[in-house]
Simulated scan of single mutants.
Amino acid sequence: MSDDTDKNVPLRAEIFGAAEGTKVLVLLHGFGGTHHIWRQVVASLRDADPCLSIIAYDLPGHGENLDAPDSGPPKRAAQLITADLTRRGVQHFHLAGHSMGGAIAALIAISTPERVSSLSLVAPGGFGPEIDIKTLSAFAAAETPEELRRCLGAMSAPGTVMADDDMKALAASRAQPGQTSMLEAIAAGMTRDGKQGQLPGEWLEKLTMPVALLWGTADSILPYHQSQGIPAHFALHTIVDGGHMLPEECPETVAHIIALTGR
């Protein structure tokens, strides 16, 4: 999927745990976020399996990978991440993605199925045409902790508390020169005539690794009914009254399902 030139484009990621020869899990966050969204999920996973090695990327065009070349389209992000894993010597891995990161994770699994041991998709993009692009566009332009908290609150189940430290960290990421303009450009390319692009069903049907799909029934960004009609071998985990930000709303549940899928 990626060409040889991408192997010379290193991406930054936070790595939890050791080392070569251990089980590797790759985490991909959603649009407008950073890898810090997985903080509580990572803690639960590491408690359950201290030998697990986790690579949590900032998506190309986001956070510490703002400067990744040609960032924006999910297909390009999948190319760059796949090439970076090759550069790191990671040939086989478990994979989980949230929202836009879920669409990217699915593209990686579709293009290199022999490398992906399991796939966990958390409210993923690309499973239906509907998307609340108005809220996502507002999130792209948000800069202060208060603005970010307001946008994330609109995406989350009622009562979800966003930690102050997380909002400050996200605001610091947004303060990078060019970050909000990059996010606004990515948001502008997400839809055509108000609809998001969809992953072809025949591509998903060909996936043979264990696949879990997690979706909240109160998701206002990507509606829950997009989880219907999935391939029969996908395991659907319905989060009753869950919103879009499941890694922050119910991190222990998300961690449990990722671990269960990767057994």
Rank of each mutant, 00 (worst) to 15 (best):
D3M: 13
L11D: 06
F16P: 08
G17A: 08
A18D: 15
A18E: 15
K23A: 13
F31W: 06
G32F: 07
G33R: 12
G33S: 15
H35E: 07
H35D: 06
W38C: 02
Q40M: 08
A43H: 03
A48M: 13
L52Q: 08
S53I: 10
A56R: 08
A56N: 05
D58K: 02
L59D: 00
P60D: 07
P60K: 12
G61E: 12
H62T: 01
P74D: 03
Q79C: 07
Q79G: 06
L80E: 09
R88K: 13
Q91E: 14
M100N: 14
I104D: 06
I104L: 11
I104E: 09
R115S: 14
V122I: 15
P124E: 03
F127Q: 00
F127L: 05
F139G: 04
E143I: 10
R149D: 02
R150Q: 08
A154R: 15
A154T: 04
A157T: 11
A172T: 15
Q176T: 03
P177Y: 03
P177Q: 11
E184T: 08
A187W: 09
M190G: 07
R192K: 10
D193R: 11
G197V: 04
Q198K: 10
A212Y: 12
L213F: 10
W215L: 04
T217E: 08
T217A: 12
D219F: 10
L222A: 12
Y224H: 15
Q226S: 02
D241L: 13
H244N: 04
P247S: 01
C250G: 03
A255D: 14
